[in-house]
Amino acid sequence: MSNAVTTIETASAEPIVHARGLRKHFGKTEVLHGLDFDIPPGRIYGLIGHNGAGKTTTLNALLGLTSAEGTIRVLGKDPFAHRAELMENVAFISDVASLPRFLRVRELFALLTNIHPNFDQQKARTFLEGTDVKMEAKIKQLSKGMIAQLHLAVVMAIDAKLLVLDEPTLGLDITYRKRFYRRLLEDYMTEERTLLITTHQVDEIEFMLSDIMFIRDGDLVLHMQMETVSGKYAQLIVGPDHLEAARALRPIYEETRFGQTAMVFDGVDRSELEALGQVSTPTLSDLFVALMQRTPSNSGAGQ
């Protein structure tokens, strides 16, 4: 396990995803440094990290799209060796522009009906009701937002145990993004289904996450349930008069906002902080900024 990771075991049920010592090399560069984690069923996981942190590589390893060292089991199977078999119960969107553009929507559904044993065409048609996507439309003529809706309809019509979404709303406007996540939550999620999602727009998915994993430079630096975040982390808004007293409690992050100082603390008793200023639970983006500070690998390049 990576040295700085914070992990709180979440459930005793057979995990949907089990990874131990997950490593990946591109040439001589190691981009994943031995990740250890389990994802139990029925949870909504957010995998969050900077560009190049290793999110997509991790997802690709879980989906059997790339080989990796270590042990990975998804639904009990080695994903790289059994990708095709695994995809009967795993659905994913890695890029909303990846739908076959030469097909009409109707043709796509007809093909999927025959290719995917767990695809329900009627469900997919129902999900498209109320959208501007027409069955006779050619996919290449749809807008990016409409393609995203279509792709979401496709994966939601697949009766899968694990749904993986890698930046599913990249490039979409706020209306589409909100509608996308709302439908996902309302129409798809059940206790038997697990959702693993990566995005840079962490504030937009915070409300739906049950667990978070922060990945930084190929290491897992945080893995915990959302409800335990408030017990471990606290944010303090402190005025100039209590600044030094607050600093003495060793915040993990500090920044000045509009003349006030915001600090994030790890494992400090809230009652101690309340005497110094206004205490709250940090948002996911605040926590992200606090925990993911890093020195760029080429920071000395200009010297």
Binding site: A84, E85, A91, S94, S98, P100, L112, I115
Partner: peptide, 17 residues
């Protein structure tokens, strides 16, 4: 070329198939 590789890889069919 058509950026559809990930879509087809999300289907339960092997590359050989």
């Amino acid at each position: 070329r058509n950026n559809a590789m990930l879509f087809w890889k999300s289907m339960p069919v092997s590359d050989l198939k």
